[in-house]
Nucleic acid binder design. Structure first.
Length: 554
DNA sequence: GCCGTTTTCGGCCCGACTGTTTTCAGTCG
């Protein structure tokens, strides 16, 4: 609608309808026209649209717009820093319909000449378009795992004579994946080929496939699928070989042998046996990067990697007080149902006006409600938190007496994301040094495959967290996974505590904790270094102690 | 297109930033 010059306020009302529809607990498919109209933001027109989707499983208006929009223009909608207005102009004035043509036009200085554009915009556009091209057909881990599991199940179902497993980067739980790799051992390759040829959601790339490898494309996502083939007796060896990173495989073992050579000697019947032969303890698949796992293995200090089941509570969550979809009570109830001992609610702070951030008087209202809920929820406890915006100069956006009214504070950056490394680092360190800061939220602001992290000096930031006793978040949202596991490793070395936080904006968001655990494990995270693996009473004491320290310093 | 009433049409969330512009439009969180 934005691209086709539809009325701005009409667009706004569609947006607000979607916002409210996502919040509602009702199943839209069960509602009549009248019932639909009762939903806030839904009037006669939008009710009819939902009804059309209910009846026909599609929407004529949407299909029509989609058919008028080139695929490259849809891709451009993802360019960070560029919205519909600028894309519309590029499309109409320069007749550009692909990211590649866009880059060429930037290089030919054609974009800077457009009204409202300039040299800087052109440069940023080129950079942003290259970033998107680079990330094309990558999947976030969540989607890759989901697709991979469906493929494994389908292929397993083809015959009893098939062994199949995820392998490669998806088995190592990398944050973004290309391609999705599987290993299949079978004597019935024809069945597998037929499956790839016939599966509606796949395109089998026969020409690019060979006797040891089959390739396909997942049509809706564009994801690449690579299926390694082997004989049944080679399954373990091949699983090991295709899982490990090149660095892991080539690592010099005792006697200067590498795994690559070891695997040539014989067929093993388990991965444990392979490590045994190398005189090493078992190394979990997600650690096989060739980075630091051998240091642990050789000194017999393999960490006992964190499990989701070891997490006792959920910190950093939003409710309808700010931009969450579900009420505080609903969030708390569901958290309790999942078996957690506590919930840390941390709605947006007042600076985040776009997210309905909490003014001081609304904080008081929320605290009253939390007190009431805590009275009636038995052993379960809601902790009073806030996701306080880190302002441009590194200060938090409430006065000390307001900050002191919380049990814990997540300090996060949401604005001015384009500082240079030095300024951004100093800003973060100032926030870390604030005695009221409990947890540093999503430290680099990255959105995987969408927005690059702002540059920071990771070492300096982590060192500051160690010095001031600030916990670092692994934001478990599949698009963030921030702090990156490569830096979590350094944080663990410095003894910094980690909090695996879902940043849930709805009840279902709690389940993202799994993805945070995945990246924590890659860095060697254990329950001992995870703050939300503490029990309710332990974390209560921890928060209390932190606050007393803060008050004595403030 | 939706809402809410001043019941028939006017107003629609907002503050900051950026790169343009020469006073503001577009984008973002």
């Amino acid at each position: 609608m934005e691209l086709f010059g539809e009325n701005d306020f009409k667009i706004k009302s569609y947006n607000s309808a979607v916002f409210n529809l996502e919040k509602t607990e009702k199943r839209l498919a069960d509602l009549s026209l009248d019932q639909l109209e009762e939903i806030e933001g839904v009037g006669k027109s939008i009710a009819k649209i939902i009804d059309e989707i209910n009846r026909t499983q599609s929407l004529g208006y949407y299909e029509e717009m989609l058919s008028k929009t080139p695929a490259g223009i849809l891709e451009m909608m993802k360019l960070s820093g560029f919205g519909p207005k600028k894309i519309k102009l590029i499309w109409e004035q320069l007749k550009i319909e692909t990211l590649e043509d866009l880059i060429t036009a930037c290089e030919a200085n054609k974009v800077a000449a457009l009204k409202g554009f300039g040299d800087k915009t052109q440069e940023k556009l080129k950079e942003s378009a290259s970033f998107l091209i680079q990330n094309r057909y990558y999947l976030h881990y969540r989607e890759a795992e989901k697709l991979g599991k469906i493929l494994v199940e389908d292929i397993q179902g083809l015959s009893d004579n098939i062994k199949v497993s995820l392998t490669g980067e998806v088995r190592r739980k990398m944050e973004v994946i290309k391609p999705v790799e599987l290993l299949v051992a079978t004597t019935e390759v024809a069945k597998l080929r037929d499956y790839l040829r016939d599966a509606e959601e796949l395109e089998f790339l026969e020409k690019q496939s060979g006797p040891r490898n089959l390739k396909a494309i997942h049509l809706s996502s564009g994801a690449e699928i690579s299926i390694h083939l082997c004989k049944p007796e080679q399954f373990v060896n091949e699983l090991f070989r295709t899982t490990a990173s090149p660095l892991h495989l080539s690592y010099a073992l005792e006697g200067n042998q590498s795994f690559t050579q070891l695997l040539k000697e014989k067929n093993y019947d388990s991965e444990e046996a392979i490590y045994s032969a190398a005189e090493l303890p078992f190394i979990a698949p997600e650690l096989r990067e060739g980075l630091w796992e051998f240091d642990w293995a050789k000194s017999k200090k393999m960490p006992e990697l964190l499990e989701v089941s070891e997490l006792k509570g959920v910190l950093h969550n939003h409710s309808t007080y700010s931009d969450g979809a579900h009420s505080l009570e609903a969030m708390a109830q569901y958290c309790k149902e999942l078996g957690y001992e506590y919930l840390g609610i941390s709605d947006h702070s007042k600076t985040a006006a776009y997210a309905n951030g909490l003014q001081e008087f609304r904080i008081k209202e929320q605290h009253k409600e939390i007190d009431l809920l805590n009275e009636k929820m038995g052993d379960f406890r809601i902790f009073k938190g806030i996701e306080s915006d880190i302002l441009g100069d590194g200060s938090l956006d409430y006065s000390d007496d307001v900050l002191a009214s919380f049990d814990f504070i997540v300090a996060s950056i949401h604005s001015q994301l384009n500082m240079d490394e030095k300024t951004a680092t100093n800003r973060l360190i100032k926030a870390i040094a604030n005695p009221f800061t409990t947890i540093l939220g999503h430290p680099t602001g990255r959105l995987l495959l969408q927005r690059q992290a702002y540059p920071i000096n990771h070492k300096a930031v982590i060192d500051a967290c160690a010095e001031y006793g600030v916990v670092i978040e692994i934001n478990a949202h599949p698009y963030r996974l921030d702090l990156d596991w490569r830096h979590v490793h350094y944080a663990l070395e410095k003894g910094v505590m980690i909090s695996v936080n879902p940043d849930a904006h709805e009840k279902a968001g709690y389940h993202d904790m799994y993805f945070g655990v995945c990246v924590g494990r890659k860095a060697g995270l254990t329950a001992e270094q995870t703050i939300n693996a503490l029990s309710r009473s332990e974390i209560e004491k921890y928060f209390e102690k932190r606050k007393q320290q803060a008050l004595s310093k403030a």
